[in-house]
Structures are given as C-alpha cells and as structure tokens.
Design a binder for these strands. Structure first.
Lengths: 231, 231
DNA sequence: AACGATAGAATCCTATAGGATTTAGACTAT
DNA sequence: ATAGTCTAAATCCTATAGGATTCTATCGTT
C-alpha cells in the first residue's frame, strides 16, 4: 500500500482541462470582454476540438461567476461589476482575507515567507505597459500574493470561499483600470503585510490586510466613481 | 423590447439540469455515500439518458466539493469530513454567517421575517424518524433558515462564499448523526436569532448566530469526538 | 502460497450526427 | 416607415459510436 504512485507526479490532463485553461486565459487577458457570447460550437472550431470538452469546461466555469448560462441560449461573459457591486466584492474580501491572514500567520513557514517575498519582488519589477499582455505579470503577482495567504491558512473551506471571489477580483483588476494608479501603493501595502508576517506579528498582519483591501476599495472608487455600465 | 417573455415565467430546463438535481438529491439523501464511485455511464443508464448531460452535471457538481474528479478515472463522492475538518467548516461558518446576519438585519423586511418564522415552525414540527427520508424535512428547514439569511444579506459575493460551504454543511448534518440530539437546541437558537431580527436588534442577531454555530460545533464534537474516518 | 503478467470488461474521453430552439434578415401588409 | 410574419442560418442540446485508459479476475511462475 506504499504510495509508489507519487502524489503530484503525472497529474494527467484531459482535453477539457486544456480548454478550461484556454477560456480562462481569454477571460483574464481581456480577449473575451464582458457581455461577449461564448459560443460552444464557435469555441470548439477556434480551438479545433469537438464541442463536448468545450461544454464541460464551460459548465465548470459557470460556477466561478465569470460566465453565465441561459438554457438553450448559451453562455455569456458575465457583465462587469458596477461600482456598487465592486464595493460589495471588497466588503466580502474584508470579511475573508483578514481571517485567512491571521490563520496563515499562525503557521507561517520560511518557505511561505520566501514565496510571499518573491511575489512582492515580481510585483515591483513587472513591466507596466499599456496593453493587457504587459500588465499580465503584474496582475499575476498581485493575485499570487493573496492566494498564497489563502492557501497557507490551512482551512480548505475558507480557501473555497476565497476562490469564489478570486476570479471576480482578478477581472475587476483588469477592467477597472485601477492597476496603473494602484501599483506603487499596492507594493508598499503588500510589503507591510509581509514584514508583519516576518516579525511574527500575526494581528498586525491581519490589520495590514484589512487596511490594504480598504485602500484598494477607496482607490477604485476614486478612479471610477459613477461608471456603472459601459456598454 | 418589452419583456413579454416574463423574467421568471418559464425558466426553461434542459436535461443536464434535471440530472444535476437528481444526483444532488442522491447525495443529500444519503443514497450516495462518501467514497462511492459515481460512474458517468452507469448514472446515464440509471437515469435513462445519454452520458453527455451526466458529464455536464458532474462537472458542475465538482465545484461544490461534493464530488471529486480524477482525470481518466471518474468521479467519486467526496470523503466525509474528519472531526478536524468539521471544526474547520464551523470556523468558516463563524466567519461568514454572522456577517450575513448583520447585513440581513439591516434590511430586514416583514416578508423575510415571516419566511424565517415559517422555517422555524417547519423545523419544530418536522418528523424526526430514524430514516434519512424522515429527517429530510428537518434538514431542509434548517438549511432554509440559514440560506434565507445569506440571500437577504444582499451581497452576492458573500452569498457565493456561503454557497461554497452550504453543501458541505448539509452533508455533515446528514452523516454526523448530530441532528437527533441537536434538534431541541437548534430550534431554540434559531428562535433567538429570529426574535433579535424582529426586535430590530441587529448586533444581537449576529451575536446569537455566532453562539448558534459555536454550539453546533460543540455538540458535534461531543457526539463524535474521535471518529476520523468511518470507511 | 504469494507475486507478477495477461486478457477481458467496464469506464472514461472525444468526435460526429441529427433534432430542437433561437436568432437574424428579408419580405409583405398596414 | 413601421410592425408583423416567414425563411434560413446559427446555435444549443442530446444521442450514439469508437478509441484510449483503467480496473478486475484469471492464470502461470517462483
């Protein structure tokens, strides 16, 4: 009964997984814009696969809130959050992320600490060009920082709750245009959280996380005060 | 452009939706036990449909945590939470549900209040027999109470976070055997939350919710102290 | 008797085909 | 010109077929 089959050795992938990644990439890159239809047959033609794996990938994506499905009418990219919904999203983050921060702080390891520092370094050095592709690394580093904390909190249910928000957060980062003005502040705030972790100041880290998310909300509201729906 | 097609009139259903409901029912009823394999072809034969809608339904269910998928090996009912995981689940509920309670309390309406009271009434009058089927109404009323609060909190992201937990909570109710000893306490605690809502005591309602979930955890731990995996 | 190899069945995965539904455009009548 | 109807294309939805993989049981060897 020895685990000869290494746990993470050959994690087999099937076509639907690749399709899932591909569509997710398009959503996060901005190639698929809010409101766009995501045709099953059309996507299958584009990716040169049959509709079956596309259907399976979209069924999974629906649960993330990134795409919405109407029976017999197909899938659409979820509309962009209004300013009010953005505030609700930040409110939800303020509930979950400080708790994750506290839990992660209680079991912080040198490895996690190093990974967090790496993400901050990537955030600071990522190119910040005008195009989506050039911002990609920046957004990735930002998301990685928060995800690392959620994963190291050690509570799979709170991680699931965070995942229910993560995709929306990423989308908001992309379309709000906050990233540009947000960058320098975000780097400093991430670093403040990291330093509290490093010093073993668990409550301080949680407080800094609360402050960080609050600031993100404030900066976002300042940037796009009343732009409820673009289309 | 008039909405002649009434919004909620004929919400068309496709076969995959029925299959989804059917499998979910089996999971919640206990017909499908933790660890059981959920064969795509087999389920398709049982329900007398083709494998395609079964595949789509399972893809959606995977994201709820109720079933787990291994590439090229199929789906399995997720193993039952250990005592430690149960504690983590309650910890997550303690993070989310009091906040939802507070938000719901701030916009409480007579209609919602009546629905909450109805769920308590159903909880008190539900038969509590030995079989799964006889407990079904009790569990439904319990879940309805908590779901009403989450839905009326008005934050779709926190609702999504709650949904990420709800299925697990329901499963735990079913298999832990806590329900029996829990019933009289739970009814009283639900009523205490309701009365705080009715009196406009928002903070009191939130506090009572915290107390309720804490008590559920305590009673569950007392019932099954060290039963980690039953097989 | 225990271990490893092999054949068969069961299952998963993808592709294809056809019916059902929706959508878009053209045509006609008011 | 606008509203309504009708036709055709596109799309969704389900079923079926076949290849690829995994599981199970039998058999032979040490």
């Amino acid at each position: 009964m020895k685990p000869l089959t290494a746990p993470h050795a050959i994690s087999r992938q099937v076509l639907a997984d690749h399709v899932y990644d591909e569509i997710l990439e398009s959503l996060m890159d901005g190639r698929l814009m809010p409101g766009d239809a995501v045709s099953i047959d059309g996507t299958a033609r584009d990716l040169e696969v049959s509709p079956t794996p596309v259907r399976e990938a979209l069924a999974r994506l629906e649960h993330t809130g990134l795409v919405q499905r109407a029976a017999l009418k197909g899938y659409r990219v979820a509309p962009l959050s209004s300013a009010a919904e953005m505030a609700q999203l930040m409110e939800a983050r303020l509930v979950i992320e400080p708790v994750n921060t506290r839990l992660a702080g209680e079991v912080m390891t040198p490895e996690t600490l190093a990974a967090l520092e790496q993400s901050i370094h990537d955030l600071a050095t990522a190119p910040r060009g005008p195009s989506f592709a050039e911002f990609r690394d920046y957004f990735d580093a930002d998301e990685r920082f928060h995800r690392l904390i959620a994963e190291n909190a050690g509570n799979p249910f709170l991680l699931a709750a965070y995942n229910a928000l993560g995709g929306q957060v990423q989308r908001f980062r992309l379309f709000s245009g906050v990233g540009i003005t947000d960058a320098n502040f975000a780097i400093a705030e991430h670093r403040a959280i990291f330093e509290a972790f490093r010093d073993g100041d668990v409550e301080g880290a949680a407080a800094k996380m609360t402050e960080h998310v609050s600031n993100v909300r404030a900066r976002a509201m300042a940037d796009a005060p009343a732009e409820s729906s673009a289309e």
